[in-house]
């Protein structure tokens, strides 16, 4: 029996390894694909877009009917996101609100995968012959940066579109230090550029790492709680201490699930709000 139990390190590593086409040894390698992340994020994207599209079509076809059930929920969400956007951004860009809704729902669904029992889907995958499966896309740096870099591209795009290339470069080089003499301004501009670039680049990096860090840590807690009944010293349900461990695992996992419910919502909300703020700032003239 003891031989069938995985080693602690092995078990943790198993839960940290993606299902890839080939093992990745270097930090960056653009020939490797995380099949699990792509599969689950596309699945969740289809789930979100499909269900919202069905509601939207029904709502548009019968605008006289009283909204019920899931339609009320979707409309409440749309109304809430709309008010969040209107609080921050007062322009006419028609992309920001749907973008915010997409981010909130998609990130929330990413994170929600964390609430599924930690060995459920990897166990099923193991049964059909897949060695590894990571079910939470937001614990993949690629997914987190995929979101934040897209937002970053939109930030740059709208900055240049609204202020012009010169306006955008001016924003990067003419503040915070300003001088009347042009020969003093040139070295100051270099300093400004360094400072502003750090500020600018810190935005997508912090956006991605905040989401990734929270979810990675959350998932790790679930893995460690699962280890309570997987370690060699676990006595099984034949003994009192075995029952104690099982009970402790159940109680702690439940407590962390409840707390995690809050975390995943907050992380999705933070990602959405910061995206709105960054894009609103891209539209403002300084």
């Amino acid at each position: 029996m003891a031989a069938k139990q995985p080693q602690i390190g092995e078990y943790i590593l198993h839960h940290l390894t993606f299902l890839t086409n080939k093992p990745q040894t270097s930090l960056v390698n653009f020939t490797v694909i995380d099949y699990d992340t792509v599969f689950f994020s596309v699945l969740l994207a289809v789930l979100f877009a499909g269900s919202f599209y069905l509601v939207a079509r029904k709502s548009a076809a019968a605008s006289n009917s009283v909204p019920r059930g899931f339609q009320s929920f979707v409309e409440m969400l749309v109304d809430w996101v709309d008010s969040q956007v209107k609080d921050v951004y007062h322009g006419t860009n028609r992309l920001i609100a749907p973008l915010a809704l997409t981010i909130f729902c998609w990130v929330y669904l990413f994170n929600f995968m964390d609430l599924l029992p930690v060995d459920l889907l990897p166990g099923v995958a193991g049964a059909v012959g897949l060695a590894h499966l990571k079910v939470v896309p937001s614990t993949d740096l690629n997914a987190a940066f995929g979101l934040s870099l897209t937002v970053f591209i939109l930030m740059i795009y709208y900055s240049i579109k609204v202020k012009g290339l010169l306006g955008f470069l001016g924003e990067l080089t003419l503040q915070p230090f300003r001088a009347k003499n042009i020969f003093v301004q040139i070295p100051l501009s270099i300093v400004n550029f360094v400072l502003e670039s750090v500020t600018l680049i810190a935005r997508p990096v912090s956006l991605a790492l905040r989401l990734f860090g929270n979810l990675f840590a959350g998932e790790m807690i679930f893995v460690l709680l699962a280890l309570l009944t997987l370690v060699h010293s676990y006595a099984g349900l034949e003994s009192v201490s075995g029952w104690g461990m099982a009970l402790m695992q159940a109680v702690l996992t439940f407590a962390w699930e409840v707390f995690h419910l809050l975390i995943i919502t907050i992380q999705a909300f933070i990602f959405m709000v910061l995206t709105i703020v960054y894009l609103a700032m891209a539209h403002e003239h300084h």
Binding site: T31, I33, D34, N142, G146, T150
Partner: peptide
């Protein structure tokens, strides 16, 4: 923790 082609795919799916 690694960056790979998934990043590009994720950005495309997101777009």
């Amino acid at each position: 923790m690694h960056i790979n082609l998934t990043l590009v795919i994720q950005m495309a799916v997101f777009a």
